[in-house]
């Protein structure tokens, strides 16, 4: 059992009815052995819960905790968001996946989109600690959805914030400053490496942006998984024409080689059922919200 030590709502997306939460949970072995880029698989219920992969956003080996950040995009994450401090998550296994390869290369641009900023955080820290000059680009649809700003400011050498609607930072998409950095605009030398984490479509376009400049670009994939240990192959993607398992061969891959279209299709494999379950979970949360008079109900409003 993994006790919840801290719970914070990082953002609330009115338009989509989705929230982003930060949980700090006890997991001493994972905290001790995890490295940047690795993830965990958790279940909200040991018997019937689905196994969902979440990247480790932060950890403290001495205090024995890890932090996870998740968005209430489906039934399981919505259920997870109902857990409170003092409660426990029944199943967490990790750290899974191969750690990020961190080398001193010079300038590294780390692009985090939406909730992808959270898994990017330890990678920014690690690159910075390795002596790289880290420029972080953080993107969101609108100001209220920018997360981890303070953490990223602390961990990076430079921080560029971009919002779709221009309500905060630069107006536009993350690919715009990324392109300028590759072009060497504003006195920058071309980055030696780019890491992009976010929605698949964002990563696809980041790769399309860096490809003409031939800047090595790593992406971190978050496909559907079950065991997370290489046993089922559910998470497989095509990388350079070869089938790879995200859970053990990844989660990070050479972005130039990933077949994003096939990956995005595969992520929709269970879409109908997922949406039905999400609606059911939302209705359930709403009902609890109404009877308890609790504000949690608003998550599903």
């Amino acid at each position: 059992m993994h006790k919840i030590l801290e719970k914070r709502r990082l953002s609330h997306d009115e338009e989509r009815g989705q929230d982003v939460y930060y949980f700090k949970v006890t997991a001493p072995e994972i905290a001790r052995n995890r490295r940047a880029g690795q993830f965990i698989v958790l279940q909200v219920d040991e018997t019937y819960g689905e196994r969902i992969p979440l990247t480790i956003a932060d950890a403290n080996a001495e205090e024995g905790w890890i932090a996870i950040v998740f968005q209430t995009v489906g039934a399981s994450t919505l259920k997870l968001s109902q857990f409170e401090v003092g409660g426990s998550i029944p199943v967490i296994v990790g750290p899974l996946g191969s750690p990020t390869r961190i080398e001193k290369v010079g300038t590294v641009v780390c692009v985090g989109g939406g909730i992808g900023v959270a898994p990017m955080h330890p990678i920014v820290q690690a690159h910075h600690n390795a002596g790289n000059h880290v420029i972080a680009i953080v993107g969101a649809r609108t100001k209220d959805l920018v997360i981890f700003e303070e953490e990223m400011k602390k961990a990076s050498d430079e921080l560029i914030i971009v919002t779709d609607d221009g309500s905060y930072g630069r107006k536009g998409l993350v690919t715009e400053p990324l392109k300028e950095l590759c072009e060497g605009k504003g006195g920058y030398s071309m980055p030696n490496e780019v890491v992009a984490i976010g929605p698949p479509i964002m990563m696809k376009f980041c790769v399309a942006t860096t490809r003409p400049f031939n800047v090595p670009t790593t992406v971190s994939l978050n496909t559907i998984m079950i065991d997370g240990t290489g046993m089922c192959g559910c998470c497989r993607v095509s990388v350079g024409g070869e089938t790879k398992f995200v859970c053990v061969d990844g989660p990070e891959f050479d972005g130039f080689k990933v077949d994003f279209d096939n990956m995005m299709q595969r992520m929709r494999a269970f879409r109908d059922r997922e949406q039905a379950d999400y609606q059911k979970a939302k209705d359930h949360v709403c009902r609890i919200g109404l009877t308890n008079g609790s504000t949690l109900g608003k998550a599903g409003a």
Binding site: E29, I30, R32, N33, V91, I92, V93, G94, P95, L96, T229
Partner: peptide, 11 residues
């Protein structure tokens, strides 16, 4: 010890 992946959780 459940949900303990030897090699990852601890080597």
């Amino acid at each position: 010890k459940m949900s303990f992946l030897v090699g990852r959780t601890e080597t």
